[in-house]
Design a protein around this nucleic acid. Structure first.
Lengths: 340, 340
DNA sequence: GTGAAAGCGCTAACAG
DNA sequence: CTGTTAGCGCTTTCAC
């Protein structure tokens, strides 16, 4: 391994100068800077981050905590895209991601311990409020953090404007003449689930429509299985008066609902109109293509990254703790004007 | 920050002893071990990995290189599941993952430099052969690595048995009476694309069926868009003699092909039978549910992890460089006996 | 079974 | 503008 000493010796200067050169101190003359860089290159020197971290207490590592338990982790189309965008952005600033888990080296360590062990400079939280207890220790520590899912007091969170999205979906359906609008919710212990559901109720009320509990079902989790079950249950609950439209709180389940309804003999959109939420990739290719609410995942990831970096670097931040990213109605073919 | 010195002082022993206790040296008496652990706990001590890494040259970090460019990264259902399984497994051994990228801190650094900077103990390669050049430096360095996608001389790779999978698909179709079997391939510069295509040709030959170039189309990349385009092209190329079945090299595209065919008036499976490859989550919920070849992603991730850890810890390995994970035919409803 | 001491590669005052 | 020096927190001989 070639070190700063090797470079110094070869370049005829001190290790300190090499260090300064690599850290872009302005106090280095052009000449020596150039010389140092050249010999570093020649010798194939790469700075050693462990040593640097030990000396500076900065690892350039950002912890990411997400919960595989709820099928809402790296494998989830929503979070994986946010994560990708987040990672790209922090990469531009020299940071890397490390996944924080509870189980570590066979013993039960808390998330906090894992963070401390890795010495992360900050943390991205992508877990639902359901896991409030397990991340409590990190929330209470003075590790900088930003959330893209749960909402916590005095912490920044970047999240879609669920109310806006719900209203966009519902207003569109209403505009098409629908008055019997059902809702398949995501788990209500998630922020998305709760907010979209509440917006649904708020919308009904704002239009003077009566809330009918039979028109609402909550999916157990974020899997396709749960979605199918929910769709079936909705049909069962409303067999005496089927809805003409259903607002489904996320695309994966909107999709499964469509196929489930179709299998039961309903035509989409003629018999039932559907609007989803997420605009995941496949939604443009379903039969029929799904009308849905787009979440700007690239923006969420990027904003969260910028925010976290500013926090870490102790820059001035003049944003509210809760940053809402606007959503957008994507009209495709799963909705039609209500039949007379 | 509480260090080993604090613990030592409080426990009435030397830092060296504390270190030994934490590293499970057997030369520590039960009594002092217990004492140390208790006071460590009391003081809230967590080992600092940067310091440990500096002293030992071991970071407990594993680099992961995957290529977002081909839409085949963290966002891809196949790789994200492998990664999840891999991550869980290495986590059990105390390792963590860090993503290796080319662009780092604004300057163009090669993958190798990123690895060196982070001092990774090993690398998981999940990039196609298309990127051979960019990972060449890693391959040539003496960093331990395992691949789950490309195949490189003298390197371990854990990958599905694509030939087996193709034969399972094709034999099933053949058994159902199909003789006009088309193939939609993934990009042929990927291992999966090439091997499945070659197996397709081998199968035809083995059954004395004539290979007809018109029955084959190669998708441009791994997106739904490319799949749709490929499906359309297949229809166009074969308008005078449509295939009765098509073997599609991956589920995402199999799915899009189904909907595309359906939109063009073909019934699945009555007019065209489809078998895919991957068994991604959604495949059980398409209309009709997709018959496909299952890849055991959990196993791939786990095996790759075990292999890499053994490599890192210089254990004996008696496995071939190329480890093929068996595939499995999952029969659902997208295939039927050929019409007379 | 335990401890003293040197050192891992780098940074950060402080001098010069 | 450059160099000296003293750590950062931990591990690892080698004595005891």
């Amino acid at each position: 391994m070639v070190t700063i000493y090797d470079v110094a010796k070869e370049a005829g200067c001190s290790p300190a100068t090499v260090s300064k050169a690599f850290n872009n101190y302005k106090s280095i003359s052009q000449k020596t800077y150039k010389k140092i860089m050249e010999t570093a290159d020649k010798l194939g020197y790469t700075p050693n981050n462990s040593a640097r971290a030990l000396a500076t207490k900065k690892t350039w590592l950002i912890g990411v905590v997400l919960s595989e338990e709820l099928h809402t982790g790296i494998t989830h189309p929503h979070f994986s895209e946010i994560l990708q965008s987040f990672n790209t952005r922090i990469g531009e600033y020299g940071y890397d991601i490390v996944f924080i888990s509870k189980r570590f080296g066979n013993k039960e360590e808390s998330y906090l311990e894992h963070c401390l062990y890795r010495g992360v400079d900050g943390v991205l939280l992508a877990v639902g409020a359901k896991f409030k207890d397990e991340i409590k220790s990190i929330l209470e520590s003075d590790i900088k953090c930003v959330s893209v899912e749960g909402i916590y007091p005095n912490k920044y969170t970047v999240i879609s404007d669920n109310r806006m999205g719900s209203f966009q979906a519902l207003e569109y359906l209403y505009f098409l003449g629908h008055r019997k609008i059902a809702h398949i919710a995501c788990p209500l212990n998630s922020v998305a689930g709760r907010e979209r559901y509440e917006a649904y109720r708020e919308f009904l009320e704002s239009r003077g429509m009566e809330f009918n509990p039979k028109y609402v079902v909550e999916a157990e989790d974020f899997t396709h299985e749960a979605g199918q079950k929910a769709a079936l249950q909705l049909l069962q609950q409303t067999f005496d008066d089927f809805p003409t439209a259903v607002y489904v709180a996320y695309d994966d389940v909107a999709y499964v609902s469509m196929t489930t309804f179709q299998e039961k003999g309903f035509r989409i959109p003629e018999d039932i109109s559907i609007v989803g939420f997420d605009n995941i990739k496949i939604s443009a290719f379903t039969t029929p293509p799904l009308t849905t609410i787009e979440q700007d995942r690239m923006e969420i990831g990027k904003r969260a990254a910028d925010l976290l970096i500013n926090l870490i670097e102790e820059k001035e931040i003049d944003e509210p703790y809760e940053i809402r990213i606007p959503t957008k109605l994507i009209m495709r073919n799963s909705c039609s004007r209500v039949a007379e």
